[in-house]
Amino acid sequence: MTTLHNPTIWEISDSDNDGDEGAQGDLKRSSNAKLALAPPLSDGYKRPSQTRKRRSKEEMEADKEKGRGMKEARERKRAAKELEKEEKRKQQQKRKEAAEQLNSLKPENCLKCLTVCVDPALLQQEGSDILLGTLSSCEWRYIIEQQQLPNSITWTRNLPQQGEDGSATMEEDQVVQVLGATQFLDMVITVKKMIDSGGGDSAISRDAAKVLTLLVTESRPDYRRRGHETIQSKYGGENLNVEEVLVYLQLYKNMSVVFLDGWQEVTDHICAVTKSLSKRPLKLLTEKVDLPFCVDGSWASGVRVEKDGSGLKQVWSKQIQQLNRVSPAVALCVTAAHPSPQLLLQAYEASGSEEDKKRLLAGLVVEGEGKDRRIGPDVSARVYRCFTTQNPELVLD
């Protein structure tokens, strides 16, 4: 088979000696050669710009729906982020408020919220300026106003978190009444007459919700002897025991009586009460709801029982150890033979006579570091009485 090649088309120049015409002839031959070698265009060929397919209406709607879905997803993601930021902001605000509240409950800050209320009648007593001078030097707030109980001192606390106007005042339950020697002796005589006559409490007028402390100021060392002489002379010469009145006030009226030597000691007492009140809010916050003597931890001989029941065997062993002269080794021996109280009760029921029930645990061997021993009839009988008696006042040992 013979392959035909496109022949090169030559153009013959009129003059071979003309250089310019020769160059143009070569250019024409090169162009004609390219045209002759180029493949012909087929009838079905179209340029790329003319081959883009027109989309249908359904495809356009699907693209729009896809775009809307992506936009909604972005919006939901943005909203979730905003919600998360808002939640974090709220938590930070709560922690900040809790920290501020805890900081406000510190004693040094609570002192700024306390106000010492002094009855004007106390200013007539000699030496009362020591109290006012001390309160001023400590930069504690105090006011002079009429009190319900004469010659008394009370305390109020500002509560910024309460009230419609953002502040409120709460009265503390502590009340201190300062009495001179003569005033106290008159009160003792009145209370003694009330005790003897079986009368009411008209001699002692106070708020039952308040804790009252009587401060008796007397600088003379022979006050007790002179006090007894004064009481006997006013009471008609009969024997009157001051301690009897003091015990009555403390037990029946919840009133304490403190004898102090002058206003300096009175001032020290007022300062001590003020500092104690400043520590009260933080103590109330840190106190647990549970009973304070129910401590937790292995050092307190406590056993923790989990939700799956683990720890019940240790509790059963601790219960047996509550009996006198029952060591942990003896309790472990009993719990190994009878893993629960119910099983021990069933063993008692299955025993024959009363004597057999009392000696049910006597033969159990207690393993020790040295020689093994048995529980014995005494401990066995006490365990039996503890778990089967119907008398709540029975003495086990």
Rank of each mutant, 00 (worst) to 15 (best):
T274S: 09
E229S: 09
D268G: 03
T286E: 15
D261V: 07
Q232C: 13
E229Q: 14
P281A: 08
I231T: 11
P281Q: 12
Q264I: 08
E243W: 06
V245Q: 04
V258G: 05
H228E: 13
D290C: 10
V242K: 02
V289F: 07
K288N: 09
R225K: 13
S256D: 13
L246V: 06
L291C: 12
V242R: 06
V245Y: 05
G227A: 04
Y223C: 13
R224K: 11
E229C: 05
K253H: 15
K279W: 10
L277A: 00
A272H: 12
E287D: 10
S278I: 04
V258T: 10
V245W: 05
L277P: 01
V273L: 15
D268W: 02
E244R: 08
T267L: 00
V258R: 11
L282A: 13
N239T: 12
V266W: 06
E265Y: 00
T267H: 00
I270M: 05
L285A: 14
D290T: 09
F259D: 03
L291Y: 09
V242N: 00
F259N: 04
G236K: 04
W263M: 07
D261Y: 02
D290K: 13
L251S: 09
T286D: 10
T286C: 11
Y252P: 00
K288Q: 13
R280G: 01
E287V: 10
N254R: 14
K288L: 12
R280A: 11
S233P: 02
T267G: 02
V289R: 10
V266E: 04
E287N: 12
K253P: 03
W263A: 01
W263G: 04
K288Y: 08
A272P: 01
E243M: 08
D290G: 13
R280N: 02
Q264F: 09
V247I: 06
L251P: 00
V258H: 09
G262E: 03
D261N: 15
H269Q: 08
K283R: 14
L284M: 14
F259Q: 04
Y248I: 01
K283S: 12
K279N: 14
E265K: 07
N254G: 07
V257N: 04
W263F: 11
V247W: 06
Y248P: 00
W263Q: 04
T286S: 08
V289Q: 12
L246Y: 03
V273T: 06
T274W: 01
L260G: 02
Y235Q: 10
Y235F: 12
L240F: 07
S256M: 10
E229T: 12
Y248L: 06
M255E: 05
L246F: 04
L240G: 03
R280C: 01
T230D: 10
Y223R: 15
Y223A: 15
E238L: 07
Y223L: 14
I231S: 07
L240C: 07
N239Q: 13
E265D: 09
V258N: 09
R280W: 03
V242W: 00
P281E: 07
Y235T: 13
M255T: 10
A272T: 11
T286G: 07
S276I: 03
T286N: 07
R226K: 12
T286H: 14
D261E: 15
A272G: 06
D290W: 05
G227W: 05
K283L: 15
P221C: 11
R226V: 10
G236I: 04
R226F: 08
S278C: 12
